[in-house]
Amino acid sequence: MLALVMLTGLVCVALGSVPIPLDKTASILWDGVLGRDLTGNTQAVIILTVRLPRVISVFLVGAALSLCGAAMQGLLRNPLADGATLGVSSGASLGAMLAILMGIQLPMLPLAGTAVLSVIFAFLSLLLVLFLAFALDRSLATNTIILIGVILTMFMGSLMSLLISFSGPRLRSLTFWTLGSLSGAGYAEALFLLLALVVCGLVLLAHARELDAFAMGEENARAIGVSVRRVKLTVMAAVSVLIGVCVSIGGSIGFVGLVIPHISRLIMGPAHKRLLITSLLLGGVFLMLCDLAARTLLSPVELPLGVVTSLIGAVFFMFILANTRRRAA
């Protein structure tokens, strides 16, 4: 699996509007790792300053979104659930959009303004979902949470449309951003994503057994000794931080968190210890390939990444759904 990640990464770095042979790409990357002087080498500049940080960021966003999807699907016992179903993604999008519109930035930390507001809004959406779910149904039943998540997503969508319609000259950048893109991602973005993925990813991996317990029913999870409320809150918090950071950097990129965990489950089975790791790696590979398609299909025009994932993901998901129905019948 790691070899697949490395190979896909290498291909994605090599290909683009200016294709560079694989062996040449590998040697430039190796020279870059060893810190050799590559000044004056145009191909090295393209690879090391443009493509590599972007491919790394794309891998990390894909891995994070897919990991979040797998975790939410276990927690909510629903294969169609992911961070987006909870309303966390749309909350994060709204926060990021507000930060862009109001020009909120933190001194010394250019990325942090959007990310902080994005994570805060992701958290607030989460708290709102939990508060409403708790008010309606004290047990925080999963169906209630999903329903409220859907309502919240629609509400946030309306607010975002409202913001876009009032945004005037910034409209184009906002629209492109809501479609999802990592075209401007550099090493700073990659490092930020890596930090978030390591911290939240470890939290989620540490709860693999609890997610198995949730996947077999919440009442049963409590009966075997799982602290249902604490685990729910921890997993949801980790998911919302990850999604908040991803959305603040790459915008809305849909379907990764739905399709990849599904495929991973078919390959590895439902046990979360393996499922989470497989989803993480496959999610990264999938998004790297989608980004490659976005960059090269209509070159020199670049497609928004979110559009590519939705196009591939929707068709693929319909296929999965039809297949599942056929098997059930």
């Binding site: 016992r77 294969p79 996947a215 009442e219 049963n220 009966a223 089975g269």
Partner: peptide
Amino acid sequence: HQHHTLGYPY
């Protein structure tokens, strides 16, 4: 418990 809800092929 009386009823069980399972979603995945464990």
